[in-house]
């Protein structure tokens, strides 16, 4: 019924691995005592994810997520939690759009790239926040800038 080209368009975007991660997400759930907890939301399409990380010696020891949204955003989140497991803070915060595209292996186009990147950006923002808090705690009291408040 379908021509090869059309079949390609759907099959490529919703290839088996994507559908598998969407329907059976890995590391899906909540974690007690997480070091990093970050909720992010794409107001344009309503995709949302909450990522939670446990950190140890500057690396990601455990990563989980919850969320709802399109297949691409949720599959990307699932694949990301697997990928960052055991990675250093630096390696995670320097991950780029291209790294994410290599992981998910689809060409989402300019509109849906936001779906692909939602979880990565949440992880990165969460880690940056976590590192900033730690740096702040490590500072002598006089440098914490508390007087501003």
């Amino acid at each position: 019924m379908k021509t090869t080209k059309q079949a390609d368009a759907v099959e490529e975007l919703y290839r088996e691995e994507i559908m598998d991660h969407y329907q059976n997400p890995r590391n899906f759930g909540h974690m007690d005592g997480a070091d990093v907890s970050y909720h992010d939301y794409n107001p344009v399409c309503g995709d949302e994810v909450t990522v939670q990380l446990k950190m140890e010696n500057g690396t990601v020891k455990e990563a989980v997520f919850t969320g709802k949204g399109c297949a691409i955003s949720q599959a990307a989140a699932s694949m990301l939690t697997e990928q960052i497991h055991g990675k250093s803070v630096k390696a995670v915060v320097t991950m780029t759009q291209n790294d994410m595209l290599e992981t998910i292996k689809i060409n989402p186009g300019p509109v849906r790239i936001k779906c692909v990147l939602l979880a990565l950006r949440a992880v990165q923002k969460g880690i940056v926040q976590y590192e900033a808090n730690r740096a702040n705690l490590a500072k002598p009291f006089s440098e914490k800038g508390l007087s501003k408040n």
Binding site: Y14, C70, A71, I72
Partner: peptide, 11 residues
Amino acid sequence: HTHDVSAILDA
């Protein structure tokens, strides 16, 4: 999700 519906229709 509506984006998945739209993408399948787009194809």
